[in-house]
Design a binder for these strands. Structure first.
Length: 426
RNA sequence: GGAGAGGUGGCAGAGUGGUCGAAUGCGGCGGUCUCGAAAACCGUUAUGCCCGCAAGGGCAUCGAGAGUUCGAAUCUCUCCUUCUCCGCCA
């Protein structure tokens, strides 16, 4: 959510942002309703002031055992008028709030212009060695064929017991998945200095609103109406909301959390696109990084967070590239986003495995997460950041395909050895 | 799932229709005293919104929302939540 004062004072900037991020052009409505809102507030507050003053007068008369019927009758009229205006104001604030909620976050100055994913800039490419062959399409079995050959995952039975897109991890596949999660958590917690959290996998509507998933992306989230709970699409939601409606102290910042969760996404409307195997599933596993940062250092923290995610890929020796998303591809809530894509050699594709964003105060304002510079100063909004560190599903595709040996066996990355009881899948 | 008791400022805890944004204590901040510190004493100590260049003024907020009333922390209803007991259960 943007600050209404920023919208009021920089309408051109906001109008431009809405256009770039393909939002609804609600700006004129917002400005108009903001004006009416303030006009009503001014009227109703004069009346309330009168009511308060006269009510004191009534109390004084009653104590003095003097009649107050005239004043009371007069105040009845004022009170009715207040009630009418208050109702109008409530309605107006509700619609205004919805409109403001639908305005996307403004972009950082370093974000390049661009209409869609084609405008994203590759800013970095990494491979275990500098040889070009890393990025060539390789012969061999793709991850699905490998999974079948070694019985690592069972998509068919997953579909039987749940639905399509809910994979079952079997045997060494399950062990490898678990090893990846533990390796990533340990690396972030013990080397990168994040505190580990294991959050609930269900959250309420207010939490989803705080991170910006509601109301705009409500159709992407699984909902259990009986309990009014939503299955989390990412651990970002529960972890960012840890400090919803709280005021932190400056000395606590930056707060850095890493957390594993299963992630549930309906992926409505994306049928038929990259749906094979692990490329697009309704349930997957992810280790998420979340930071609550001081506004002055949030951009440094953003670079550091992205590096922390990249470090995982480097330790696993999986080739990747970093993309700086262009203006048109940067998400609704984000001011700037880097995507990390891993190279899946048999698939011959770059697969998105991480997305690292700085939301500045956009989420913090929605979720009301603040800090105090010192004990006497006014609370200000923190900056929130997050990034996948990383999602296992896409990583698994790249890992299996890249580590496939000429003889068809799959070597396990050295970094995972402490977490595994086997060094090769054969 | 059933029964009962609660939710008040950073914390503890008074307050059952009118001078209550809210006693008191603790904590925090500033000061006096002191070589310094402690103690003691004095002062101060919420957030949001509206008007205003500012100084300042106003409105709202006692778990949330709705209602009764000229007037609600206080009365009514709904919801959330915490605790205790019973039942069920990994």
């Amino acid at each position: 959510m943007l600050d209404i004062k920023l919208i009021r004072e920089n309408p051109d900037l906001v109008r431009k942002t809405i256009a770039i991020k393909h939002g609804d052009d609600v700006l004129d409505q917002v400005l108009e309703q903001d004006l009416s809102r303030r006009a009503i507030i001014q009227r109703v507050e004069v009346l309330k002031n009168k009511r308060n003053t006269v009510s004191d007068e009534v109390a004084r008369l009653k104590r003095a055992k003097q009649p107050a019927d005239d004043v009371i009758a007069e105040m009845k009229i004022v009170s009715d008028e207040i009630a009418t205006l208050d109702a109008k104001l409530r309605e107006l604030e509700l619609t205004l709030g919805t409109l403001v909620d639908s305005i996307p976050n403004t972009l950082h100055s370093s974000v390049p212009d661009g209409a869609d994913a084609a405008g994203n800039q590759e800013v970095k490419r990494w491979a275990p060695s500098s040889e070009a062959h890393w990025y060539e399409k390789k012969e061999g079995l793709d991850h699905l064929a490998l999974a079948e050959k070694y019985q690592l995952f069972d998509f068919k039975r997953g579909a039987k017991i749940a639905a399509a897109g809910f994979p079952v991890y079997m045997g060494r596949g399950a062990a490898l998945e678990r090893a990846l999660i533990n390796f990533m958590l340990d690396t972030h917690a013990h080397i990168h200095g994040y505190e580990e959290v294991l959050p609930p996998f269900f959250v309420n509507a207010e939490s989803l609103r705080g991170t910006g998933n509601l109301p705009k992306f409500g159709d992407q989230v699984y909902y259990m109406p009986e309990d009014k709970l939503y299955a989390i699409p990412t651990a970002e939601v529960p972890i960012t909301n840890l400090y919803r409606d709280e005021v932190l102290t400056r000395s606590q910042l930056p707060l850095k959390y890493c957390g594993y969760s299963a992630c549930f996404r309906r992926e409505a409307g994306s049928y038929g696109k990259d749906t094979r195997g692990f490329l697009r599933v309704h349930e997957f596993n992810k280790v998420e990084l979340v930071k609550f940062a001081h506004p002055e250092t949030s951009w440094e923290e953003h670079e550091a967070l992205t590096r922390d995610a990249e470090r995982i890929l480097e330790l696993l020796e999986i080739p990747y590239r970093r993309l700086l998303l262009c203006s048109g591809d940067t998400s609704f809530s984000s001011a700037k986003t880097y995507d990390l894509e891993v190279w899946a050699s048999v698939e011959g594709k770059w697969l998105e495995a991480s997305s690292c964003s700085n939301f500045e105060s956009f989420q913090a304002r929605r979720a009301n997460i603040r800090f105090r510079e010192d004990p006497k100063s006014k609370p200000e909004f923190v900056h929130t950041l997050n990034g996948s560190g990383l999602a296992t599903s896409r990583l698994m595709v790249a890992l299996l395909e890249n580590y496939q040996q000429p003889d068809g066996t799959i070597k396990m990355p050295a970094a995972l050895q402490p977490y595994l009881r086997f060094s090769v899948i054969e």
